[in-house]
């Protein structure tokens, strides 16, 4: 049971049940679709990037497992107000944490709220679930500016 609780920590379960920033973002000027063909996880990341590269707002929606949904939800919370470069750096740190060796120590301070995902590294098949939203966010940052997405 301890292994289970380590992976499915309460914070993850809460974000899965009530994801934050869930749904399209009317004022977004970047949008990317993320798809995991192996498991069928499918999500969209919408963000509004200011002229000086600050993520003013970020949302996501789609379907996926608890890990991918919670990861997307926490990501949107953390990245609001970050610059694009800071967002890329956080992704690099997150990616390093979930793909590290099992016995490598977790830098809890650097990981911050994301430390709840450190259990994922024991389940290599689930790494792609935890990183899907982040990959999608990165592609959205790298994409050309689009007209704001409407919800009509």
């Amino acid at each position: 049971m301890s292994e289970l609780r380590e992976l499915y920590q309460q914070v993850i379960l809460d974000h899965n049940r009530k994801p934050h920033n869930f749904g399209p973002l009317d004022t977004a000027n970047r949008h990317q679709e993320g798809f995991n063909p192996l498991c069928g996880d499918h999500l969209h990341v919408y963000l509004r990037l200011s002229a000086d590269d600050v993520i003013e707002d970020i949302h996501f929606d789609g379907s996926g497992c608890a890990i991918s949904k919670a990861s997307a939800s926490l990501m949107t919370q953390l990245l609001k107000g970050c610059t694009a470069d800071e967002a890329r750096q956080r992704f690099a740190g997150f990616h390093a944490m979930v793909t590290a060796d099992n016995d490598a120590p977790v830098d809890l301070e650097a990981a911050g709220k994301l430390a709840v995902f450190s259990g994922v590294r024991e389940f290599p098949m689930r790494v792609k679930c935890a990183t899907l939203a982040w990959h999608t966010m990165k592609s959205a940052l790298d994409s050309e500016a689009t007209d704001p997405i409407t919800t009509e």
């Binding site: 992976l7 499915y8 498991c39 996926g64 497992c65 608890a66 890990i67 689930r126």
Partner: peptide, 10 residues
């Protein structure tokens, strides 16, 4: 509402 992947891992 459990996603199959979460079922599979548990």
């Amino acid at each position: 509402a459990a996603h199959p992947h979460d079922i599979g891992t548990i």
